Amino acid sequence: MATTDTAVSLSNVRKTYRVGEPVHALDGVSLEIPRGSYTAIMGPSGSGKSTLMNLVGCLDTPSEGDVFIDDRNVGSLSGRERTRLRGTQVGFVFQTFNLMPRLTALENVALPQLFQGADRVERRERARALLERVGLADREDHRPNELSGGQRQRVALARALVNDPAIVLADEPSGNLDTETEAEVLDLFGEFHEAGTTMVVVTHERHVAERAERIVHLLDGKIERIEELDGVTDELDSGANR
C-alpha cells in the first residue's frame, strides 16, 4: 500500500491483453514513486511504457496486483470513481497537447477544476495564475490554433497542474517541439518539480530522461533496471519483479 510519502505504488502488477494468444504487457512490476520526485520511464517499443502510463494515469486497471494512487487502490474503484480520481489526482501532458480547440487557453486550463466543484470565478483565477507561471498571461484569450507548439504545451502543463494533483504524467511531452522550445518546456517541468510537484515523464529520448532524478528502464514488460542519476544503479535480475 502507498504511504503518505508515496504518490504512486505498484505491487506485483501484471497486465495481460488477449488478442488470440495472451500478451503480457506488464509482467510482475513493483515500483514506488515518492511524492515530490521526478521519474523518467524509458524502454523500446513494446516494453510496456504505454501500459504503465495507462495504469498510473487511472486509464486502465491491472490484471493482477495493486496500483495505489495517493493511497487509493485503483483496482477496487468503480469506473466513475476512477474517473474522479483521474480528474483530481492525475495531471496529463500529452505529446499532441489534447487541448479543446474551441476553448481559449484560459478555458482549457480551467476545465479540469469542474471535478473539484470550484465556482467560475475560482476556476478562472486559478487558471490565470498558472498561465502567468508558464509565461502565457498575455495569451489567455487565444485558442489553440492561435498558439505555437511550445505555447500549446505550456497551456497543457498549466492544465495538468490546475487541480494540484498527486502526480503529473507526461507522455513524450517534447516529441512535437523544436530543440529550443523543448528545452524551455523541460525547464518548466524542472521548476514545478523543484516546487514540489511529482513528475513522471515517459520518453524514448535519453536527454529528456536525464532531466529526472532517476530513470526506470523497462524491457519486455519488466523493470530491467532503475538508474539513479546520482550514479547508483539498481540492477534487477529477470525474476526481481516477479
Rank of each mutant, 00 (worst) to 15 (best):
L10K: 11
E235N: 02
G196H: 12
V201L: 07
S45G: 10
S37I: 12
L147H: 09
T104R: 08
L106R: 14
L26Q: 00
G65Y: 07
R133S: 13
Y38C: 09
S78L: 06
V23P: 03
T197Q: 15
G65I: 04
V208M: 14
G36H: 05
D187I: 06
N176A: 00
V8N: 14
A2M: 11
L161R: 01
R80E: 15
R123E: 14
G28P: 05
L52K: 01
S174D: 03
P22Q: 09
G87D: 05
L130F: 13
P165D: 06
F97P: 11
G28C: 09
V155N: 03
F68E: 08
R82L: 00
S78D: 10
L10F: 14
I167Y: 06
E227H: 02
L130D: 13
I226K: 01
Q153M: 12
D234R: 13
R72T: 11
R14L: 08
D171W: 01
V29T: 11
R14C: 11
R159P: 10
H217T: 08
I223G: 13
P165Q: 05
A127I: 11
E213V: 02
G79W: 00
P165I: 01
D60S: 09
H24R: 05
A2Y: 05
R139A: 13
R128I: 05
N241C: 10
S78T: 15
E172R: 05
V8S: 11
L219R: 15
V8K: 02
L188Y: 11
A240H: 04
R86Y: 03
E235K: 04
A160M: 14
I215W: 10
H193P: 12
K222W: 02
H142I: 08
R214W: 12
T198E: 11
T88V: 05
L31V: 00
C58P: 03
G239K: 00
R14Y: 15
A240S: 09
T3C: 10
F68G: 08
L136R: 11
R128D: 15
G87R: 00
E228V: 07
L31I: 01
A129L: 14
L31N: 02
I69P: 01
V200Y: 06
A127M: 13
H204R: 02
G75P: 04
S148G: 09
V208C: 12
G28K: 06
T61R: 15
E32T: 08
N241L: 08
R18L: 06
D66W: 01
